Measured scan of single mutants.
Amino acid sequence: NQASVVANQLIPINTALTLVMMRSEVVTPVGIPADDIPRLVSMQVNRAVPLGTTLMPDMVKGYP
């Protein structure tokens, strides 16, 4: 099973992602692959992302 990117904390709308905000976890449904975490750094979320939420491609501005 492939690990996905999961919010490690509440991420407010328009926040630029940092490594501490994300963790990898095997979840269903599958979200953004954990391998993409380095690419996500400094990209902004377009909505508030609660703790434990799987990051989906449509939540991150400019992804992929």
Results as ranks from 00 to 15, higher is better:
2 Q>K: 05
64 P>Q: 15
25 E>V: 10
48 A>D: 14
11 I>W: 01
56 M>F: 10
36 D>T: 08
35 D>L: 09
38 P>N: 12
47 R>E: 13
14 N>E: 10
20 V>S: 14
30 V>M: 13
53 T>M: 14
62 G>T: 07
19 L>V: 10
59 M>Q: 05
13 I>T: 11
40 L>C: 03
15 T>K: 06
38 P>Q: 13
57 P>S: 14
23 R>I: 12
59 M>A: 09
10 L>S: 11
58 D>E: 13
64 P>T: 14
56 M>P: 02
59 M>H: 06
34 A>N: 05
2 Q>M: 14
33 P>L: 11
5 V>E: 01
24 S>W: 07
32 I>E: 02
30 V>G: 11
55 L>W: 01
53 T>S: 13
25 E>Y: 05
41 V>R: 05
23 R>W: 03
46 N>L: 14
49 V>D: 02
51 L>A: 12
34 A>Y: 07
42 S>G: 15
63 Y>S: 05
32 I>Q: 01
39 R>M: 13
33 P>W: 06
14 N>V: 03
45 V>K: 00
54 T>V: 11
43 M>G: 03
62 G>E: 14
52 G>C: 15
27 V>I: 06
63 Y>V: 06
50 P>F: 10
36 D>Y: 13
59 M>N: 04
13 I>D: 08
23 R>M: 05
3 A>H: 10
27 V>G: 03
54 T>D: 02
52 G>I: 02
2 Q>I: 10
5 V>C: 07
62 G>V: 04
53 T>L: 08
19 L>C: 15
16 A>D: 06
8 N>V: 12
36 D>V: 10
36 D>M: 12
44 Q>H: 12
54 T>A: 08
18 T>W: 03
1 N>E: 15
14 N>A: 07
24 S>E: 12
28 T>V: 13
17 L>I: 09
5 V>N: 01
33 P>Q: 07
54 T>I: 11
18 T>S: 11
61 K>C: 13
7 A>G: 03
45 V>L: 09
28 T>A: 11
25 E>Q: 08
18 T>M: 11
25 E>P: 00
39 R>T: 09
24 S>L: 06
47 R>A: 13
37 I>N: 00
10 L>G: 09
55 L>V: 08
41 V>T: 07
60 V>T: 00
2 Q>G: 15
9 Q>I: 06
1 N>A: 15
10 L>H: 13
37 I>D: 01
63 Y>E: 04
4 S>T: 04
29 P>K: 05
17 L>H: 01
40 L>A: 00
7 A>S: 14
8 N>H: 13
27 V>Y: 02
35 D>P: 11
57 P>Q: 11
20 V>L: 12
21 M>E: 03
44 Q>F: 12
50 P>M: 12
43 M>D: 03
5 V>M: 01
2 Q>L: 14
14 N>R: 05
39 R>D: 05
44 Q>T: 15
58 D>K: 06
55 L>Y: 00
24 S>M: 11
57 P>N: 07
26 V>H: 08
62 G>L: 11
30 V>H: 13
20 V>N: 11
1 N>H: 08
22 M>T: 00
31 G>V: 01
9 Q>F: 14
33 P>A: 14
12 P>H: 10
16 A>P: 08
2 Q>T: 14
9 Q>C: 05
51 L>P: 14
45 V>C: 05
48 A>E: 13
46 N>R: 08
9 Q>G: 07
51 L>T: 14
20 V>W: 12
56 M>C: 09
46 N>D: 13
48 A>C: 12
35 D>A: 08
46 N>Y: 13
31 G>W: 02
47 R>W: 05
61 K>L: 14
64 P>Y: 04
51 L>F: 11
29 P>R: 03
18 T>Y: 03
60 V>C: 02
6 V>A: 03
60 V>Y: 00
1 N>M: 15
14 N>Y: 14
63 Y>I: 04
56 M>R: 07
48 A>R: 09
31 G>L: 02
27 V>A: 08
30 V>F: 09
12 P>S: 05
7 A>C: 04
35 D>I: 09
62 G>N: 14
24 S>A: 13
27 V>F: 03
39 R>G: 06
25 E>A: 08
40 L>K: 00
5 V>W: 02
63 Y>T: 04
48 A>P: 06
49 V>R: 02
42 S>K: 07
62 G>I: 05
34 A>P: 05
48 A>K: 07
38 P>R: 07
41 V>N: 04
40 L>N: 00
35 D>V: 13
27 V>D: 02
38 P>V: 11
58 D>N: 12
57 P>V: 10
58 D>S: 12
31 G>T: 02
26 V>W: 08
16 A>N: 08
49 V>H: 01
18 T>P: 00
4 S>A: 03
52 G>Q: 03
12 P>T: 07
51 L>I: 14
28 T>F: 09
1 N>V: 15
8 N>C: 08
41 V>S: 03
29 P>D: 08
22 M>N: 02
40 L>Y: 03
20 V>T: 11
2 Q>R: 04
58 D>V: 08
35 D>S: 12
57 P>H: 15
9 Q>R: 07
22 M>V: 13
25 E>S: 08
50 P>K: 14
25 E>G: 08
18 T>A: 09
18 T>V: 09
53 T>W: 08
4 S>Q: 02
6 V>D: 00
9 Q>T: 11
48 A>W: 06
56 M>N: 06
64 P>S: 13
27 V>E: 02
52 G>H: 11
16 A>V: 12
8 N>A: 14
15 T>G: 05
